[in-house]
């Protein structure tokens, strides 16, 4: 490549970078002065979720359509989890009550997605999640059914075998709480350790900033 060619190439790359920066900046800040500062990750441009189909605790299918029209706090876990999942569900219960007190719980849903479909039947899930709060819902699905949602919500899970007793395996799983907006898109991720009071404040800010 000639020296002139190189210069032209660099100018082109520089120009492209500028254009990209301008476009991104425009998209990031067009809604508001500054995006809400939350204890987690806020996505100024909500991410659409790929089509998915899980099984709801009632036994019926649970799809993208079930996320429309309200905000959803989504947590991945499993009912055999003795420590962290009950901790998270207790926090979500506190969050729900906090939002209810603030009069901001009218358009919210709380979804526990089990990554352990082998042991978590819809019926077991229903008993499990409604113990923490009657408003909570559970859903699960096969690995194939879970994968699109897991990937889109930047989550992860993995079975950990117990060499002493195969039936007593555990699951590693992401302990974030995802916030899905009323258009069924990922809007924010609350990272652990979650504080219900802070999540409530953050949600109110996100709610207020939503176009």
């Amino acid at each position: 490549m000639t020296r002139r060619g190189k210069l032209l190439g660099m100018a082109l790359v520089g120009g492209l970078a500028l254009a990209l920066g301008w476009v991104l900046g425009e998209r990031l800040f067009r809604h508001l002065g500054s995006p809400p500062d939350i204890a987690g990750i806020y996505l100024p441009d909500a991410q659409a979720l790929p089509p998915f189909q899980l099984v709801h605790q009632s036994g019926r299918p649970f799809t993208n359509n079930d996320l429309l029209g309200h905000w959803t706090f989504l947590y991945f876990g499993y009912s055999y989890c003795p420590d962290v999942c009950p901790l998270a569900l207790t926090d979500l219960n506190r969050l729900q009550r906090r939002l209810a007190t603030a009069g901001a719980d009218g358009d919210t849903a709380y979804l526990f997605v089990s990554v352990d479909p082998q042991r978590d039947t819809p019926e077991r899930l229903r008993e499990y999640v409604t113990y923490f709060n009657p408003k909570f819902q559970g859903a699960t699905g096969s690995d194939e059914a879970l994968n699109p949602l897991i990937k889109a919500l930047h989550a992860f899970y993995q079975r950990v075998d117990n060499p002493d007793a195969p039936e007593r395996y555990t699951m590693d799983h992401t302990s974030t709480i995802s916030l899905i907006d009323p258009q069924g898109r990922l809007r924010a991720i609350f990272t652990p350790p979650q504080d219900p009071e802070r999540m409530a404040t953050d949600f109110l800010a996100i709610h207020a900033a939503a176009p």
Partner: peptide, 27 residues
């Protein structure tokens, strides 16, 4: 109950209302 033992910054009000949630409820 975890509610009573787990530290939280949330106000302790309505701590006992949780018990109502134990009854199974159909969605």
């Amino acid at each position: 109950k975890r509610e009573a033992m787990q530290p939280s910054t949330a106000p302790p009000a309505h701590e006992h209302s949780h018990g109502d949630g134990q009854k199974m409820k159909m969605e």
